[in-house]
């Protein structure tokens, strides 16, 4: 098919999308919730990459974070608690042509869905996984999560939580086949966007932990980092992200880090103060499960019939009493 130049322009215009094309329902998150910043970054990402809304699927589990698909105007799948990753994997294996994003919270991913988290990293399917980590269960009203700080007083830990928090970055970096790990914070929108954009471009499972404020149940949790930019270590690299000149003036604590260095990535992941912000690890060469399994093959009726008849032959008794068809 050939198109006139003007038709091409019209087509380009038609296929171009604005921010509104990705905006679904009005978010019902609390005022000041970090999820809003993530939603904004994601919508911008879709627009800047001109993703076709009908070929984009946002998958989530259960929790505040998992409402995100409802606020997109793409296809969305708001499933069950902890199972966003298996659902997303099923979608991607069935339809490798779709762009898949996953929103999951610290309870959804690191607690009830922890088994799936580990294995999703192993599968390394091409999708962006956003861990909305606010250190608390919000939707069920303030229970301690696996990433809650030690001593956190919640409805299930009224005398303070007794366990040290789990570190999602070190866990992820410890799993075989890990291919992309980054950390962003909701209060630096520029880097949040840049990191998500890099995650989208990466071919493989991009795991982005996003530290996120919960003004309702942990209002002061991130105050020290908001008040003191030195407490954030900005990871910079040509193959990672670089803050703009303006941002660099505020966040002066920067470190050049080569994202291909997994040992250094693991050291950085373990830092508690300052916290790293940027791309910790990236390896574009890790095989992707959907490609290893040859997903998305065209299967015609003749193709299936031929395979089926060949299998039937293995079990068939022909009228002459022998195993092969009488030729």
């Amino acid at each position: 098919m050939t198109l006139e130049a003007t038709d091409c322009l019209v087509k380009l215009y038609e296929e171009h999308h604005n921010l509104e094309d990705y905006q679904g329902g009005v978010p019902r998150w609390c005022t000041g919730c970090g999820d809003s910043g993530i939603l904004t970054a994601v919508q911008r990402l879709c627009r800047d990459n001109d993703l076709a809304p009908e070929r984009t699927v946002f998958v989530s589990g259960i929790g505040c974070s998992s409402r995100l698909p409802h606020y997109m105007k793409t296809y969305g799948f708001h499933g069950i608690h902890g199972r966003a990753l298996p659902v997303a994997e099923g979608i991607k294996l069935a339809r490798p042509d779709l762009d898949v994003f996953v929103s999951t919270g610290d309870g959804d991913c690191c607690s009830i869905g922890a088994a799936h988290w580990i294995h999703a990293i192993r599968y390394n399917m091409n999708m962006v996984v956003m861990l909305h980590d606010n250190h608390v269960y919000g939707l069920t009203k303030k229970q301690a999560s696996p990433t809650s700080p030690l001593g956190f007083k919640s409805n299930t830990t009224p005398r303070g939580s007794t366990l040290l928090p789990l570190n999602p970055l070190t866990v992820t970096l410890g799993v075989q086949n890990v291919s992309f790990v980054a950390q962003a914070v909701d209060w630096i929108p520029e880097l949040l966007y840049e990191i998500l954009a890099a995650a989208y471009k990466h071919k493989g499972l991009s795991f982005v932990r996003i530290l996120q404020r919960c003004p309702q149940y942990l209002p002061k949790m991130f105050d020290p980092w908001l008040q003191d930019p030195q407490k954030s270590l900005i990871l910079t690299h040509d193959r990672g992200v670089r803050p703009s000149a303006g941002l660099a003036k505020i966040y002066r604590n920067q470190q050049e880090h080569d994202p291909s260095d997994i040992n250094r990535a693991r050291e950085i992941a373990s830092l508690e103060d300052p916290i790293p912000v940027g791309i910790l690890y990236q390896n574009p060469d890790v095989p992707r499960y959907e490609e290893l399994r040859n997903a998305g093959q065209l299967r015609t009726a003749d193709y299936i019939k031929a395979g089926l008849e060949a299998e039937f032959d293995k079990f068939t008794i022909w009228p002459d009493g022998h195993d092969a068809p009488a030729a």
């Binding site: 298996p86 659902v87 994997e89 099923g90 294996l93 069935a94 294995h119 040859n294 997903a295």
Partner: peptide
């Protein structure tokens, strides 16, 4: 041999959620 895929999931829950995801999209 005919382009189908058997996915061995990490657990039963995942196998079912995976199937639901695949059915939803295909």
């Amino acid at each position: 041999k005919v382009g189908g895929i058997v996915h061995q999931a990490e657990d039963e829950i995942s196998a079912c959620a995976f199937a639901v995801g695949a059915s939803y999209a295909s």
